[in-house]
Amino acid sequence: QVALSRTQVCGILREELFQGDAFHQSDTHIFIIMGASGDLAKKKIYPTIWWLFRDGLLPENTFIVGYARSRLTVADIRKQSEPFFKATPEEKLKLEDFFARNSYVAGQYDDAASYQRLNSHMNALHLGSQANRLFYLALPPTVYEAVTKNIHESCMSQIGWNRIIVEKPFGRDLQSSDRLSNHISSLFREDQIYRIDHYLGKEMVQNLMVLRFANRIFGPIWNRDNIACVILTFKEPFGTEGRGGYFDEFGIIRDVMQNHLLQMLCLVAMEKPASTNSDDVRDEKVKVLKCISEVQANNVVLGQYVGNPDGEGEATKGYLDDPTVPRGSTTATFAAVVLYVENERWDGVPFILRCGKALNERKAEVRLQFHDVAGDIFHQQCKRNELVIRVQPNEAVYTKMMTKKPGMFFNPEESELDLTYGNRYKNVKLPDAYERLILDVFCGSQMHFVRSDELREAWRIFTPLLHQIELEKPKPIPYIYGSRGPTEADELMKRVGFQYEGTYKWVNPHKL
Rank of each mutant, 00 (worst) to 15 (best):
I253Q: 05
I253R: 01
R254C: 06
D255S: 03
D255Y: 03
M257W: 00
Q258T: 07
N259T: 04
H260L: 01
L261W: 04
Q263L: 02
L265W: 00
L265K: 02
L265C: 09
C266Y: 03
C266D: 06
L267E: 01
E271K: 07
E271Q: 06
K272A: 09
K272N: 06
A274N: 14
A274H: 12
T276E: 08
T276S: 10
N277R: 13
D279V: 11
D279G: 09
D280E: 13
D280H: 12
R282Y: 01
R282F: 01
D283Y: 05
D283A: 04
D283R: 01
E284H: 08
V288A: 10
L289P: 04
L289W: 00
K290I: 01
S293H: 12
E294H: 09
E294D: 13
Q296C: 13
A297Q: 14
N298H: 14
V301D: 00
L302C: 08
G303A: 09
G303M: 03
G303R: 00
V306A: 14
V306T: 15
N308F: 10
N308W: 07
G313Y: 11
E314M: 09
E314L: 08
E314F: 11
A315H: 10
T316E: 13
G318E: 06
Y319K: 00
Y319D: 00
L320E: 07
L320G: 10
D321H: 07
D321K: 07
D321A: 10
D322L: 04
P323Q: 14
P326E: 07
S329R: 04
T330K: 13
A332L: 02
T333N: 01
V337K: 08
L339P: 07
Y340R: 11
Y340Q: 13
E342Y: 11
E342I: 10
E342G: 13
E342M: 15
E342Q: 15
E342A: 14
E344Y: 05
R345N: 11
G348R: 10
P350D: 00
P350T: 01
I352M: 06
L353Y: 02
R354Q: 03
R354T: 04
K357A: 01
A358G: 11
N360C: 05
R362E: 00
A364R: 02
E365D: 09
V366M: 12
V366P: 04
R367F: 04
L368F: 06
L368P: 01
Q369L: 01
Q369D: 02
F370A: 00
H371W: 08
H371K: 15
D372V: 03
Q381E: 14
C382P: 15
K383R: 11
K383V: 15
N385V: 01
N385Y: 01
N385W: 03
E386P: 02
E386Y: 00
E386R: 03
L387T: 05
I389S: 01
R390W: 03
Q392N: 13
Q392W: 01
P393V: 02
N394D: 14
A396M: 03
V397Y: 06
Y398G: 00
T399V: 10
M402C: 10
T403P: 04
K405F: 14
P406K: 08
P406D: 01
P406I: 06
F409A: 15
F409C: 14
F410I: 14
N411Y: 09
P412R: 07
P412L: 09
P412V: 09
P412M: 09
E413W: 12
E413H: 10
E414D: 09
G422A: 14
G422K: 14
G422F: 10
R424F: 04
R424S: 06
K426S: 09
N427M: 11
N427A: 08
K429N: 13
L430D: 05
L430M: 15
D432F: 09
A433N: 05
E435D: 08
E435K: 10
R436C: 05
I438G: 01
I438H: 01
L439M: 11
F442Q: 08
S445C: 11
Q446H: 01
M447T: 14
M447N: 02
H448V: 01
H448P: 08
H448R: 09
H448A: 08
H448F: 03
S452R: 11
D453F: 00
E454F: 06
L455Y: 03
E457C: 12
E457A: 10
A458L: 04
A458K: 02
W459K: 02
R460C: 07
P464L: 08
L466Y: 04
L466K: 04
H467V: 08
Q468T: 11
E470D: 10
E472P: 06
P474Y: 09
P474K: 13
P474Q: 11
P476D: 00
P476I: 10
P476R: 00
P476E: 04
I477K: 15
Y481A: 10
Y481E: 02
Y481L: 08
S483V: 05
S483E: 09
R484K: 04
R484A: 04
G485R: 04
G485V: 00
P486V: 07
E488G: 09
M493S: 14
M493H: 09
M493G: 14
M493W: 08
R495T: 15
R495E: 12
T503N: 15
T503H: 09
T503Q: 14
K505P: 06
W506Q: 04
